[in-house]
């Protein structure tokens, strides 16, 4: 499996809203997080949903987001976070200095 990202890499979720069966939640689109782990390669749900074979399998990552980058005015500890599984085609590299948001 060739993966574009490794644990610790900063990534931005694409700001995109295609119709269809999408497993990238709206609330993380356009946001910046850090790769927590590589989960493996899995058939693409966006294709499987339409009865196609979902091949080639695509790398799936768990991405950690700081709560404060997701929700303005988040009430809680600064370190609180959300971890979300995201397929590689939804991710792009984020510069080290960039902070979340669109």
């Amino acid at each position: 499996m060739t993966t574009r990202f490794a644990p610790g890499d900063r990534v931005r979720v694409r700001w995109a809203h295609p119709p269809g069966h999408i497993r990238t939640p709206y609330y993380v689109r356009g946001k910046t997080g850090v790769i927590e782990r590589v989960c493996g390669s899995f058939r693409n749900p966006e294709e499987l949903a339409y009865a196609r074979d979902g091949q080639p399998a695509r790398p799936l990552y768990r991405v950690h987001f700081d709560q404060r980058t997701l929700w303005p005015g988040y009430q809680g500890r600064a370190k609180d976070g959300v971890e979300v599984e995201i397929f590689e085609h939804w991710l792009e590299p984020a510069g080290a200095a960039k902070e979340g948001g669109t």
Partner: peptide, 12 residues
């Protein structure tokens, strides 16, 4: 304490 939420969006 830190609270970490895990959203099961795909295959895990």
């Amino acid at each position: 304490w830190e609270v970490r939420v895990h959203d099961s969006t795909a295959d895990m």
